[in-house]
Design a protein around this nucleic acid. Structure first.
Lengths: 343, 343
DNA sequence: GCGCGCTACTAGCGCGCTCTAGTGCGAGTA
DNA sequence: TACTCGCACTAGAGCGCGCTAGTAGCGCGC
């Protein structure tokens, strides 16, 4: 057990010790027919004894295919964690390996993706990528590419996202029905889905005859953004302006920041103001009074993404596809009728 | 651009097109001396033209060393995100690649680690592992192993963690000095560092002559745990029992859940009750009034972990080491004097 | 002219595995 | 007996690289 004498045993070691050929060991480890039951058991036992574990790198090099999916995600994006949790089981079910690479501050998406590609991922699944169509296309030339959440219609890759419009519409209809009129939207800037959500918000307001009340506050998909907006609204209130009666946040993280800020300042949610999020990331049902939010089913989205990738890999020449999942409004504790029964 | 004609170009392609040998291309891509400036530029240009990118799998197989660090983390653990963000730059600085593998519900640590190992990671960095000493030892035989946050003294691996005792002591001294006496601790169950924190809490209470007030509420390092505790305390209050004046949570996530629950129920933090977290994960300064917490410097911890791994890899036979970083109490908005000036 | 050192480059083996094209052998068939 | 067939197993090429041990060519000193 010296610190660094870690000579990994190889197939040849197993073969020698079991008194068979290397090829047979390979057959056995791949679970192919062509070995008798006894030999199979003996070889596996020997392998276990000497601590043999197959080497993916060599395996992956030897067969042309790597059967590996690369996933690019952004650190601290809670919804990405939900997606990752859904990707693993589906990939495993289909016999694929998963490699993760994170984009962080100082390590851009491109770098994260490059790492995946250089490890021979056959397909890349991008979670909430902020890249442009040209980049998607370039990527598509190198590997099967699936973009989750971010839709860039021009690009020649698979997309999985939810029908942002429908989600927003449900939320808006719900709020209006409760009597809200002063409904503000914090948008997600260049974040995935933001443009569609913003557009749907505007459309819904118009449809309900509330165009005069339309107000989009620029934001991001971060807690900071919600906090900033909270401060902004409180400052306005202190200057005598009325608070909105409902806020549709860009995503759950933003809603959360807003909620914290307002609640701490004594604003009663949902008594004084309703807050609706977007994503239904695992945080939202954790909030003590659950967050009313538009649910994107992370597991379903993850499964679609994996399946798209695998199908494109296994059936050559398939055209890129798009999965548009129906989001669903989940009413929890942060929403209710506006103060005074109507705005 | 057919969907799946992705024949990656190889070194041989570059060599042929540039009219040099494969070996020279290799030299150039490794940045070794032995090629003239012009040839270097020409080859790189050609490589770029045909879209050549080196293949890690082959590279890794060819040189014995993979120069790859594997990182096992748990999905949804915010602090792990902070650590990951710190690991990348340090690894890159030292010329190492990083592979991530997540443990999720249904995909245990062992599985996540196995994936890393099979991709030939030379070292494994475990973030907040819940494994036992025996597992660490077995792992240590297969690869250099560094455990972050979780300390298991018996095991023959490197450890990076913070001086839990010191951190808790600082927090407790601070609270007591403010006049708190009814200080409750929500522990982290089997979570990393919990045992030490619990012990330190008890010791501090005793040292301040408050053993009669010692109260440890069993918990976990999750938001749920904080929420549950919050409900428990509120229920007690409703039955006429006094609230504690301060709560030392197991980590920030737990503190957060508690904070949400209490705040929503109208408890004034820090007026009625102070809350202190642990970790200083990026959430804590995001809370509208920042969370008073014990700061573990994620970046520093990450750097230590990477350096430990690399040093063990490059200097054979080095003995396992332990880095104990000093945590530091960060006083923000969730703590203050107890109601009435003293408990 | 010769050996010397230096730079610029090449030949070819081997990393640990997969996979195609086999070989040997006993049972079944005519 | 001669043959085919199927099963259990093996030989060996090759995946894309890294790397050691070279070679070719050139300027230099004597």
């Amino acid at each position: 057990m010296e610190a660094s004498g870690k000579q990994r045993p190889t197939m040849a070691d197993v073969a020698a010790k079991a008194g068979v050929s290397r090829a047979l060991v390979s057959i056995i480890f791949r679970g192919r027919p062509g070995a008798s039951q006894e030999t199979r058991e003996r070889v596996l036992r020997v392998a276990d004894e000497i601590g043999y574990h197959p080497d993916s790198a060599a395996r992956l090099l030897a067969r042309g295919r790597s059967r590996t999916l690369g996933v690019m995600f952004t650190v601290h994006q809670t919804f990405h964690s939900d997606l990752i949790a859904g990707i693993y089981p589906e990939a495993e079910r289909l016999g694929y390996d998963v490699l993760l690479s994170a984009a962080t501050h100082g390590r851009g998406e491109a770098k994260a993706v490059e790492a995946l590609l250089s490890h021979r991922c056959e397909a890349v699944i991008l979670l909430g990528s902020g890249a442009e169509a040209a980049y998607f296309d370039e990527l598509a030339r190198r590997a099967v590419t699936v973009s989750v959440s971010r839709r860039t219609p021009q690009a020649h890759v698979d997309f999985v996202h939810s029908a942002e419009g429908k989600g927003v519409r449900q939320a808006m209809d719900y709020l209006v029905e409760l009597g809200h009129r002063r409904i503000v939207h914090i948008d997600g800037g260049r974040g995935p889905g933001s443009a569609e959500r913003r557009r749907a918000y505007r459309a819904a307001m118009r449809r309900h005859g509330l165009e005069a009340e339309v107000r989009v506050i620029p934001g991001e998909h971060t807690e900071e953004s919600g906090i900033d907006t909270g401060r902004l609204l409180l400052a306005e209130r202190d200057r005598g302006l009325p608070l909105p009666t409902a806020v549709l946040a860009g995503n759950d993280r933003c809603a959360w920041g807003l909620l914290m800020t307002l609640t701490r300042a004594g604003v009663d949610v949902p008594g004084d103001l309703s807050v609706v999020g977007y994503d239904d990331s695992h945080l939202s049902h954790l909030m003590p009074i659950g967050l009313t939010t538009v649910r994107q089913d992370a597991v379903l989205m993850a499964e679609h993404a994996v399946r798209f990738a695998v199908e494109r890999l296994e059936h050559e020449g398939a055209e890129p596809r798009e999965a548009v999942l129906d989001p669903k409004l989940v009413v929890r504790g942060t929403s209710g009728p506006p103060p005074g029964g109507s705005a």
